[in-house]
Design a protein around this nucleic acid. Structure first.
Lengths: 343, 343
DNA sequence: TAGAACATTGACAGCGTTGTCATTTTAACT
DNA sequence: AGTTAAAATGACAACGCTGTCAATGTTCTA
């Protein structure tokens, strides 16, 4: 019933250790031996036991995915990306949702790591930006890869995956400018998120490049939530839109959806009277009315590359994956929530 | 650095095996011994190694969560519920998204089970309804708990958690009837989902109990998606609402959101001209305009109980959790998308 | 063609637990 | 107190794999 490495060895007529070498793709196994062993593996349908591997080996076959992000779509995409890579490489994934504000996170981490010695961790924002965590991991000697909001100039190319929110925000803003908008509001997300400042700076850079003076009164500081989007739109548009805003950049899709909601309450027509854009292209940017113009962020692809980067580190010489992309720029998706100024 | 069961044993002055007994909560350990050992465990901050436990023991400490559901909110909730329980019991969770249509699922399952011998599986709909899968698992002797749409009368109370969609649909329909609606449309979800027929039957039962004749023309057969909700609303309301429908029951929140979207396109005011209701109370039922009246389904609680049920089976006598709820009925949440008939 | 250098393979211990079974301690009887 | 049954503990071999290091094959050099 249960087939072990010994069964394979017997069938192939080699030692246990040679089978081990084959399934671990170690070098210095003769091609012929390799084939014989693989045949045996296939006919017996052998699957190496993870627990035994983790116990016996110095490196482990489980990776952790850590997140503190309320966005279900984001999390699922990240999971699926990492998972698909894990499957290919024969790794197991342990997911670790957490709440940074909880405080006892450090303990939590240590427990997780002790219980199942991990090959490494994929950290997603905003946790990936927390220096205290990074230091802790460095101290503990845990491998990790961080997914971060940032621009290609940054260093740490071997341990970070960057999402260029700056460029994406620039592109969205440029899109609105090209439609004739001049007074563009910005609904800022959580200040603790690096993505917030990146997006804000991209927006400002675009304005500057088009010789539009910056105006702090057009910026609402909120959180990445629907409710905050509602509040932000109300705050910026006020009673009768005194600032004469014709376009609103949402910090993310949820805020944009909130702004859409608020506009509706205020009787503002979208996009005739006001353009609204999102960020991330999560499924519900297609489920609002009208559908949101936004910046598409391929989270599953991003997390796949994060996993690949991690494996490159953990597997060392055995894996020299050269095609890893370390910088991603979300790309503009124009839908119905943005249009030319009518003013 | 790394503390093992031996370190604990030494410090406590007992044998390795006794420590093992304590951490496994086996009976026949003297209270005094137990305390001494626990003290040692705590001072050393000992965490049993999962790989070793899985390898040595007959039962394993990993459970799997299997799902084939496109709804991110649902999946996250299920994960978190199971996960929270796993943490308490010292189990590890392996998530297993899959695509039933892929075909090679059986192989996929077997691989997963071989690689990390599992204590058991939590199956969520629609997979949990697939007899072929259940039979396979029975054959393989794998423990599992199914989360299913169904009514309390069903058997298998020790292996299934029921979500009473029938009652919930009944309640929503009754709500609409009480508001004066008579021509109530129904946007049917995927026919393969048990929840679809349960919800449909609940709707029909409510109508019958209020002496409203059933009319198949008011039922649209679609899928549980936003797009399908759009199509369904268009199909039922047609050019000028010839069937004189005043309320629309969405098969789930997404369909309801789609119907909302379509109504907007057709210039129909919600809820003044048309009431629309959802199902599940996923976050975005609060992010539509107007917010959706829906049936709240506590997925995290449901999955927690599923996990508890599973542990009761796998741990046998060691765990006699008596407070497991096996039937959940989603409860009506009235928001702004439903209102009295104006006709 | 001998000998060195290198490539390939194998024997065996050990990873940190739990299961089995033997041993010791305690409790419960006469 | 002496016996017996029951409860509590311990010794030690697994579990299925990988790391180490020694043993064997193979190729190259002179």
């Amino acid at each position: 019933m249960k087939v072990t490495i010994n069964d394979v060895a017997k069938l192939a007529g080699v030692s246990m250790k040679t089978v081990s070498r084959v399934i671990n793709k170690e070098p210095s196994v003769r091609k012929k031996t390799y084939d014989i062993v693989m045949d045996a593996v296939n006919t017996l349908n052998y699957q190496p036991n993870l627990a035994a591997r983790n116990l016996a080996g110095t490196s482990s076959f489980t990776v952790g995915l850590v997140y503190d992000n309320p966005n279900a779509y984001y999390v699922i995409d990240m999971q699926n990306g990492v998972l698909s890579r894990c499957k290919e490489e024969g790794y197991e994934l342990v997911i670790h949702p957490c709440n940074y504000l909880d405080g006892n996170m450090e303990e939590d981490f240590k427990t997780m790591i002790k219980r199942s010695r991990l090959a490494g961790l994929v950290l997603t924002p905003p946790l990936s930006e927390q220096n205290s965590i990074i230091e802790m991991l460095d101290e503990m000697g845990i491998h990790y890869v961080r997914v971060l909001s940032g621009r290609p100039t940054e260093e740490n190319q071997d341990t970070c995956i960057y999402v260029n929110d700056y460029a994406a925000a620039y592109e969205i803003t440029a899109h609105l400018l090209s439609l004739g908008h001049k007074n563009i509001g910005f609904l800022c997300g959580d200040k603790e998120h690096k993505s917030t400042t990146e997006r804000l700076e991209g927006y400002q850079a675009a304005l500057k490049d088009h010789s539009i003076p910056l105006n702090d009164e057009l910026i609402y500081e909120g959180q990445y939530s629907f409710e905050s989007g509602v509040e932000g739109a109300k705050a910026l548009l006020g009673e009768s839109n005194p600032k004469n805003i014709t376009a609103l950049l949402g910090g993310n899709d949820e805020m944009a959806a909130g702004a859409l909601f608020a506009s509706r309450l205020m009787g503002i027509e979208i996009p005739q009277q006001l353009s609204i854009t999102g960020f991330e292209d999560s499924p519900f940017s297609r489920q609002t009315w009208p559908k949101l113009t936004t910046a598409h962020q391929a989270n599953d692809v991003i997390s796949q590359h994060a996993a690949r980067l991690l494996f490159r580190k953990t597997r060392g010489a055995r894996n020299q994956d050269k095609d890893i992309i370390t910088t991603f720029t979300p790309s503009l998706v124009v839908r119905e929530s943005s249009g030319p100024t009518t003013a």
